[in-house]
Amino acid sequence: MKALRKFCLYALSLLAFGQGRAQNEPKHLYVFKDRNYLCLRAVDLSDAAVLDSSQLVATYRYSYQKELWNPLRWSETEVVLQIGARWSKCFPAVLRQIDEQLTRTGDGSAGGRGVFSPRIGTVYENLAKHRLSSEHRYPFSDRLIRYDEPADTTVWRVGGEAVEVLGYACIPATATFRGREWTIWFAPDLPAAANLWLFRGVPGLILRAETAQFRFECTAIRPSREAILQLKANGRKLSRERWRSLERHYHEEPYRAFNNNDENAFFEDRFRLNGDNWTIEYNPIELE
């Protein structure tokens, strides 16, 4: 947090300096400690729809290999799974944190944005209709991008030595899912109407999941009544294929994707990023 405050203060100083300059100076300045960590804006929850109330909440440690060339360097964040009678929601906890802070303060500059690598979005499931809706925040923008798809059942190969997670005996299973070979461990003693992320098709809550460069590990399970909120849409619906094309584009050409007709300027520490020196390694959790 100290490093983030330092960069925010530096950005404000640049902004103050720019206000006294020519009209063609950028309106928004973004300063990163690491150019691979993008800015996702918070959303005011006052207009969010209450889809359901949770009955069970599971929290996971979500880890991913930060760089393909360095298998020892990993990043992690927290993912929350809310399961209700009619809806479920799986999302990075940092998004709820910045949204709640913005909603409390009403000030976009005080908790109005989160800086992290958006390797995973928010997934809603309509349990009656067996439909999934994935939601992504376009970096440096107020756009919310959603696409729908059926909650297809994956065919898992069950077998292997059981492990214990949080006191529950978990059975392993493997499958190729969205282009990656995943191993999961599910708890038959925890039957659930929904499950972690996009995984479906096993008779129990998944408490651990891993592939070569991504891992989920459940750290807590509790009965809890929490509002399952869906953010108010402010962007058009896209297909999953169109979103993945946009995602690749902003990794391969981030300056072109985000500079918004030169309204935005980007710095890594004090080094200005542009179309010639800025790319972001593209290593999505879904390969196909």
Score class of each variant (00 low, 15 high):
Pro139Gln: 09
Ser54His: 02
Thr153Ser: 15
Glu67Asn: 09
Ile228Leu: 02
Arg272Gln: 10
Val165Ala: 11
Asn274Arg: 15
Val43His: 10
Asp148Glu: 12
Pro188Lys: 04
Asp107Gln: 12
Ala173Phe: 08
Lys232Cys: 03
Leu231Ala: 05
Ser224Cys: 11
Lys237Gln: 14
Asn126Val: 04
Lys2Trp: 06
Glu263Ile: 00
Arg242Ile: 08
Leu132His: 01
Ala257Phe: 09
Asp34Cys: 06
Gly160Glu: 06
Met1Gln: 15
Val57Cys: 05
Gln55Trp: 14
Leu190His: 01
Thr219Cys: 12
Pro203His: 11
Ser141Asp: 07
Ala220Glu: 14
Phe199Trp: 10
Pro188Ser: 07
Val202Ile: 03
Ala227Pro: 07
Glu241Ala: 14
Pro223His: 11
Cys39Phe: 03
Gln213Ile: 01
Leu68Asp: 13
Glu288Gln: 13
Thr77Tyr: 12
Tyr168Gln: 01
Arg242Val: 05
Glu100Val: 02
Gly20His: 08
Leu56His: 10
Pro188Asp: 01
Ala16Gly: 09
Ile145Glu: 05
Ala209Ile: 00
Asn283Tyr: 15
Pro203Lys: 15
Ala169Ile: 13
Val155Met: 14
Pro172Tyr: 04
Ser13Leu: 08
Ser224Gln: 13
Glu247Ala: 06
Ala209Trp: 04
Leu246Asn: 07
Val202Tyr: 11
Phe258Asp: 02
Pro139Met: 06
Tyr30Ile: 01
Glu288Leu: 14
Tyr138Thr: 15
Thr153Met: 15
Pro172His: 03
Glu25Arg: 10
Arg157Ala: 12
Glu181Ser: 06
Trp87Gly: 00
Leu51Gln: 07
Gln101Met: 10
His136Ile: 12
Arg143His: 13
Asn274Lys: 15
Thr279Cys: 06
Asp34Glu: 11
Trp278Gly: 06
Gly179Val: 00
Leu198Asp: 13
Phe199Pro: 02
Ile120Asp: 01
Glu76Val: 10
Asn277Glu: 06
Arg73Gly: 08
Glu25Ile: 13
Phe214Glu: 04
Leu205Glu: 02
Arg215Pro: 00
Val79Asn: 04
Leu9Lys: 12
Asp52Asn: 00
Phe266Ile: 09
Thr105Gly: 09
Met1Pro: 07
Ala110Pro: 06
Ala22Ile: 12
Asp107Pro: 02
Arg270Ile: 12
Arg131Asn: 03
Phe116Ile: 01
Arg215Met: 07
Leu144Asn: 04
Leu132Arg: 03
Leu229His: 00
Asn277Cys: 07
Pro139Glu: 02
Tyr250Pro: 01
Gly204Ser: 00
Gly160Arg: 12
Ser245Trp: 15
Trp243Ala: 05
Ile98Trp: 07
Asn264Ser: 03
Leu12Pro: 03
Pro139Ala: 04
Thr176Leu: 11
Asp52Gly: 01
Ala257Asn: 02
Arg143Cys: 09
Asn70Thr: 04
Tyr60Val: 04
Glu241His: 10
Trp197Cys: 01
Ala220Asp: 12
Asn277Phe: 13
Gly108Lys: 11
